[in-house]
């Protein structure tokens, strides 16, 4: 097997697409694009240690998920910055949410608490410019709690489908 001497972050986390989103404005649109035109989309930033595993299990069990949900794996929800959430909304998502570990069970100790406050900050920011704060949310769950992942995904889908499409300039 051909393993590089020093694994780059990309090599270690091949599915980790966050830098593409943040750095140069390269589109979350790539993530969002596979929805048909005119369809809503919701970008979910899922922690590798918990929510993403739960999502994976849901996929393996062939549970039906709302077609609006687009997932992005992050190493920890503490990695998700306000810019990630706002960039996703600006690039075409109608809603964003962060799926993290249960309170007190973050693998990096406090990442999910940071994420909770960043989501709260983004909601206040949205509110201050007249955008519905419900478009950003955070849910916590354990890796084994596939039913909760499915329920939160459906809940978010229901919330967003009650709102108008997000206009952007």
């Amino acid at each position: 097997m051909n393993v590089p001497a020093v694994a780059t972050p990309e090599a270690r986390f091949p599915q980790h697409r966050v830098p593409e989103i943040s750095a140069s404005g390269v589109p979350v649109s790539e993530v969002i694009a596979d929805s048909a035109d005119g369809e809503r989309s919701i970008v979910a930033f899922l922690c590798r240690e918990c929510a993403y595993s739960a999502a994976d299990a849901a996929g393996n069990a062939r549970t039906s998920l709302p077609p609006t949900i687009r997932t992005i794996m992050v190493p920890c929800t503490g990695r998700v910055s306000p810019l990630h959430l706002l960039a996703a909304l600006a690039e075409g998502a109608d809603g964003v949410y962060v799926g993290g570990c249960l309170e007190g069970q973050c693998h990096y100790r406090e990442g999910n608490f940071h994420a909770l406050d960043r989501v709260a900050f983004v909601r206040r920011l949205l509110e201050s410019v007249g955008v519905e704060p419900e478009r950003a949310a955070m849910f916590t769950m354990s890796a084994a709690d596939t039913p909760r992942f499915v329920a939160t995904a459906r809940g978010m889908d229901a919330t967003i489908s009650r709102l108008p499409r997000l206009p952007r300039s």
Partner: peptide, 24 residues
């Protein structure tokens, strides 16, 4: 960059200061 993203979806000018969560 954050402002540019926010400006794309803003419906009006920001409505004034708000209280910041602890960890921000």
């Amino acid at each position: 960059a954050l402002a540019a993203a926010l400006r794309r979806i803003a419906r009006h000018e920001p409505s004034g200061p708000f209280r910041v969560p602890d960890r921000i």
